[in-house]
Write a protein that binds this DNA or RNA. Structure first.
Lengths: 342, 342
DNA sequence: AAATAGGATCGAAACGTTTCGATCAAAGTT
DNA sequence: AACTTTGATCGAAACGTTTCGATCCTATTT
């Protein structure tokens, strides 16, 4: 039943040329006469020949695979944020003829967690999304493999990266609130050591300052350890206990915004009537909320695709790029933000 | 900077044995004296040697890769149902030393969409999740590759499969409604040609009959083309127009249940007070609803893992299994179902 | 003591490509 | 007319393993 698969030899025989000539034609290298090219391609077609990846790999010392690394918590998250980035990469990879091998590593990374595809030299390059262990980045760079980071950037490692325009996004979100007439605006964030979060805070401050609005320290919550729904809930809790409330809140991501929303509902505070709320990321859940969440849309699939493009060009040039691509975002106005009631 | 990677030759030299002996030790084949085994393993360790996958692949005619195929719409769906199955497979694959290569194919499948990893013979077996083109299954079987289906099963193709216990799940859901005192129960489904959906209808009928309750044709909606949120919305619409309403509804999946809920809210009908509602699948969104959706939990990651196990054993025995594994489900009672008000 | 069996080890072929250097013919240069 | 360049093609080595059959040694059987 299993059909016989032809090899390059069969093609060569059929076309009446040598094996190496067939290889040249297939890989579009070296000069080949129009005549032989035709003959070869005809034979290829006739036999439905496809070179075996594994053989190409051994001979050319390229596997044709790209590793895609996420940390455990990023992938197991309810929100398919990084999953979408992955998908974008996967689809783009196909265009280039690469395979993507996905793996996750624990946040508490140590030597024995080194992905097998690195040990076995089974990838030509690595794309990593989200905050990823420092050591791992260094290890891969050390192997001489090109690296692209997505949605993360570390000042010390000189790698290529695809980044959300966090400052601009936050700026837009806060400006939106200001244009709705809000003057008392709070920031809900966490873990400022993460570059994305601190950038979003920067954007917040920039918008406030440019419009001559005061930044009230009690309304800037940055004590939460992470940026999950429960953290948002907690942060809102803190805010509620601190006397006067702001009239609008910019949460550093949708997950935290959802946490805030939940806490506000429990206190019977109406969104957006009493407090306007805007998030960041535009995860799927933002659309499920009541009210539906205004947010900053992030083009996740696009980011994944861009990472693959960057990787492909590094693979072509054979050198590690340090280019940082800033991907624009888009303000999405839904129901959780409204003109300030007076 | 790029560290030199050692090959099996280096290990052989260091251990003072032949290359073939090293191979025997590493792969735990053939008889090797304890003495040499020690020497070899010591050298392996010392040099941090790992065989290159690509070389093993060529020599052994096994790639070490498993293909994972989804249809486009399954992967781009908002609900990460199949994504979770994929994740389960991926984690399990690591234990066995396999890599997973993910790809999607269009629903309208034709010859030119054959995944590249098949043409290039870059996988040892294929796992497919969800409803998948008939032709593709046949093609792969034809290549002599083992196949496992997840959450889909076609009577004509004799393949292994990991299946949700749909009949039992539906039976439990409906029985739950009956135990709450409901007698007028509706079914919201679509596309009965899909085995999962028709099985869920079977479970519905079984529960109704066993409890001596009538199945009212007007309350059994099976006219929708698919099982999405909008279809659920539409189905509810139909139900609303048909005179008397049931007091409880079993939707064949959570997506449709969400659609129903949305429509009910628009009409100001309270769930669960006026109508109890239960879904199936336990997707993430079920937890986000207000009220939170009662449903039948499906162990998605587990199903993915089981598929990998099945694949591994087929790869070991070198033969296509036709075993069907029925994975149990679990009733999850949340807020959308309540005792019938009288 | 010779014959046999079995365990341990090894050399070499094979897997299916790419790629490098060699060869040869035709065209261009002096 | 001799020499050089260029284009087309090819043969063979190389990639790093696995695996098969051969060989050698030791222990067992007769």
């Amino acid at each position: 039943m299993a059909k016989k698969r032809y090899t390059i030899k069969d093609v060569a025989r059929m076309a009446g040329v040598s094996v190496s000539t067939v290889s040249l034609v297939i890989n579009k290298k070296g000069p080949v006469s129009e005549e032989t090219r035709r003959k070869v391609l005809h034979a290829v077609h006739k036999l439905d020949y496809h070179p075996r990846r594994v053989a190409q790999g051994l001979a050319s010392q390229k596997t044709g695979n790209i590793g895609f690394i996420l940390t455990d918590d990023h992938f197991s998250l309810v929100e398919p944020f990084y999953t979408k980035i992955f998908l974008g990469t996967e689809v783009e990879a196909r265009k280039y003829g690469y395979y993507i091998i996905l793996t996750t590593v624990p946040n508490q990374f140590s030597k024995e967690h080194i992905p097998r595809f690195l040990l076995e030299r089974n990838v030509d390059g690595v794309i990593m999304a989200g905050r990823v262990p420092e050591k791992l980045i260094a290890y891969i760079r050390d192997m001489g493999l090109p690296v692209t980071l997505v949605d993360y950037y570390n000042r010390r490692q000189k790698t290529a990266a695809i980044l959300i325009d966090n400052i601009e996004g936050a700026y837009q979100a806060v400006t939106h609130l200001i244009e709705l007439g809000h003057k008392k605006i709070g920031f809900v964030g966490g873990d400022l050591s993460h570059p994305s979060i601190s950038d979003r805070l920067t954007g917040f401050k920039k918008a406030m300052e440019e419009h001559g609005l005061p930044i009230v320290p009690e309304w800037v919550i940055t004590t939460e350890r992470n940026t999950s729904v429960p953290s948002g809930y907690q942060a809102m809790n803190t805010l509620l206990k601190s006397g006067e409330l702001p009239t609008a809140i910019f949460a550093c991501n949708d997950a935290m915004a959802i946490g805030c929303l939940r806490r506000l509902k429990e206190s019977g505070i109406r969104v957006p009537d009493q407090i306007a709320l805007i998030g960041f990321d535009d995860i799927d859940a933002a659309l499920q909320m009541e009210p539906r969440l205004s947010t900053i849309h992030v083009y996740k699939e696009r980011m994944g695709a861009l990472a693959m493009q960057q990787m492909a060009s590094m693979l072509e040039n054979g050198e590690q790029s340090t280019e940082k691509v800033l991907v624009p975002v888009e303000l999405v106005i839904r129901e959780s933000t409204a003109r300030k009631a007076d």
